[in-house]
Computed example of a mutant assay.
Amino acid sequence: MSAARTWRQFGDGPLSRITSRVYILLVVELLLLLTTLPGLLPLLLLGRDPSNLPLAALFLVPLGPAISAALYALHHQRTDLTDLRPASVFWRGYRANLSGVLRVWVPTLLWLTVLALNLAYRGAVGLPGWWTVPLVLLGVGVTLCAANALVITSLFDFRTRDVLRLAVHFLVRTPGVTVGNALLVAAAAGITAVLSEAVLAIVGSVAVLALLRVSDPMVRLTREEFTR
């Protein structure tokens, strides 16, 4: 009993909690890379020409379920060193959320692809220059709604239409979450533009953890007001 109690105290100490969090992030990062590899490798080889946008969207399809599973794992995994199972929690979340996430993620990619193509070829399709602003704003709105929807559908069991309603609702209800997600999206876009998608993938688990922490107020309100 004494040895078990000593191990339990070790597992609950500050250094142990830090160690366990680092371990969880590393495991989740490896699983993120593994599950996104089928799309990441061809994406890295794809030229940055607007004509490749539909292909880029196709290669990004595996990213949605992978982010969802990472959100699930980081949210549910305990930091006790005596009970670390981030890989099993990740795969449980991946299987449980796969269909729901794809119902949110695939339409989001389609919307963003259409908007990006219209921006890239606005002259060819006859759009006046002032259309740039509303198209960009619409793209930002779709992205922020998708971020909310991704978190909600990863952590809760709602119908897709309810997930989308809540995602839009919390854009206004939790402005701190909206601004935080906008900054995360801007940072991800900046890293991708200046460096590459590979750099962003390497810090994927940290980015997902940041998304989870930024979304804490929305998650708390969802649990308190919509799950009872």
Rank of each mutant, 00 (worst) to 15 (best):
A116M: 06
R165Y: 14
L63Y: 12
H75N: 14
A147R: 08
L33H: 09
N181D: 12
N52F: 15
F59Q: 06
W91S: 01
N181R: 09
R122M: 12
T160I: 14
P134W: 09
L137S: 06
Q77W: 04
V28A: 07
V89P: 00
V106F: 01
L166F: 12
V214I: 14
D83Q: 14
T132G: 09
S68F: 08
L112V: 05
L41K: 08
L135I: 07
L46G: 04
W7P: 00
V104R: 08
P107I: 01
N148G: 03
S2Q: 12
A73G: 11
L31S: 01
W105Y: 03
V28T: 04
L81C: 03
N118A: 15
Y94P: 00
V203D: 01
N52Q: 15
V179H: 05
L84G: 07
A189F: 10
L127R: 03
G123T: 09
S205Q: 05
L26V: 13
V27H: 07
P134R: 08
E225S: 10
S16D: 03
A186F: 07
V101S: 02
W111T: 13
R173Y: 12
L43M: 11
V114D: 00
R95G: 10
T19L: 15
G180P: 09
R103K: 15
W7F: 14
L183G: 06
V142W: 12
R220Y: 00
S196Y: 04
T178I: 08
W131D: 02
T79N: 04
R95N: 01
L45T: 07
A198W: 13
P38K: 12
I152N: 02
A87R: 12
D83E: 15
L119R: 03
L44M: 14
T227Y: 01
R92W: 02
P50M: 11
Y72M: 03
A3I: 10
D216A: 15
S154W: 08
S205V: 03
M1T: 13
D49F: 13
S215F: 02
L135M: 10
V142H: 05
L183E: 05
L98K: 05
P38Q: 09
L81A: 15
M218G: 04
S205E: 06
L31N: 02
L34G: 00
P62Y: 07
V179T: 08
L98T: 03
G141H: 11
P50Q: 08
L34W: 07
L43R: 04
L164H: 05
L43Q: 06
L55K: 11
T113F: 01
A124M: 11
R165T: 11
L109G: 02
A73S: 15
T192F: 10
P175Q: 05
